[in-house]
């Protein structure tokens, strides 16, 4: 009996709307350098269908440039380590499939907003310093007679849904990287960036939190520098609605306490300040 003819993937009839996987030779232009200087270096990589950019960086490390510095950990979009800029778009390298990229050389660069330590690895310690400056969660006391009698403060899931969205943050700092206030205007001393605006929102909107950070959000946080152009939301790999659900609600609270005379009067009448 004659052997059945070999079929290739290209011969297969299309079975659905899926894009054909990218494979074959691809050109990568990868930023090589340190805190003082650097340039793009070209690598040719034999790619396989389904590869992500981080796979290609590992191929380069294995075969061509063992000293290429790449920070990574989970390779599942959960640890936030492999943040970089792929063809100019801030992305997690482990979640960026090659077939989703434009044809042509693939540019891979470190995040522009933070100092480069080596190649694709940035020093993001500035973010940790900002995090330490934020007033942490401040648990409220039991207030009402019912709470005191039960000895507990109860809240419903629907009240926690709002703040739990912000807990999805994996601290990849892509939002910080793309934020033009930091990226283009270097306002590191004046604006803490979108990641910390949702950190503020996560504690400020928490039902069991008793802190008041509105002044802090305006002064130290610098929320007024945000002009809500939503790039942070666009790049968030955790799909957090940073602007609509975090920053704008905080801007509205700032407006109530600092810019709205009627709201300020109402708060005084209710003895809320």
């Amino acid at each position: 009996m004659a052997a059945p003819a070999e079929t290739t993937q290209a011969d297969q009839p299309s079975s659905g709307p899926e894009e054909p996987p990218r494979g074959g030779q691809a050109t990568f232009e990868v930023w090589r350098g340190d805190e003082d200087d650097g340039e793009f270096e070209t690598f040719e990589v034999e790619t396989q269908p389904g590869m992500v950019v981080l796979d290609a960086m590992h191929e380069i490390q294995a075969d061509q440039a063992p000293d290429l510095a790449v920070r990574w950990n989970c390779k599942a979009g959960k640890c936030g380590s492999c943040s970089a800029e792929v063809n100019g778009h801030p992305k997690l390298m482990c979640m960026t499939r090659l077939e989703d990229l434009e044809e042509g050389p693939i540019h891979v660069a470190p995040m522009k907003t933070f100092p480069v330590e080596k190649d694709l690895v940035c020093d993001v310690s500035w973010n940790y310093e900002q995090n330490e400056e934020i007033e942490p969660f401040d648990g409220r006391e039991l207030e009402t007679p019912a709470e005191k009698e039960k000895g507990e403060f109860r809240m419903q899931q629907e009240d926690l849904d709002r703040v739990q969205e912000f807990r999805k943050c994996i601290e990849c700092y892509l939002c910080q990287d793309v934020c033009h206030v930091l990226r283009n205007h270097d306002k590191y001393d004046a604006f803490q960036g979108p990641r910390f605006m949702i950190r503020y929102a996560g504690v400020e909107m928490h039902p069991a939190d008793d802190g008041d950070r509105v002044e802090e959000i305006w002064d130290e946080g610098g929320i007024g520098y945000c002009n809500i152009t939503k790039c942070c939301t666009d790049v968030c790999p955790a799909d957090i609605e940073i602007t609509d659900n975090g920053i704008i609600p905080m801007k509205e609270r700032v407006a109530s306490e600092k810019f709205d005379p009627l709201a300020m009067l109402w708060q005084k009448v209710r003895g809320e300040d």
Binding site: G38, A109, K112, T113, P115, C122, D186
Partner: peptide, 8 residues
Amino acid sequence: MAAPTEQR
């Protein structure tokens, strides 16, 4: 923090 954006 110094302005790292001047690097690139």
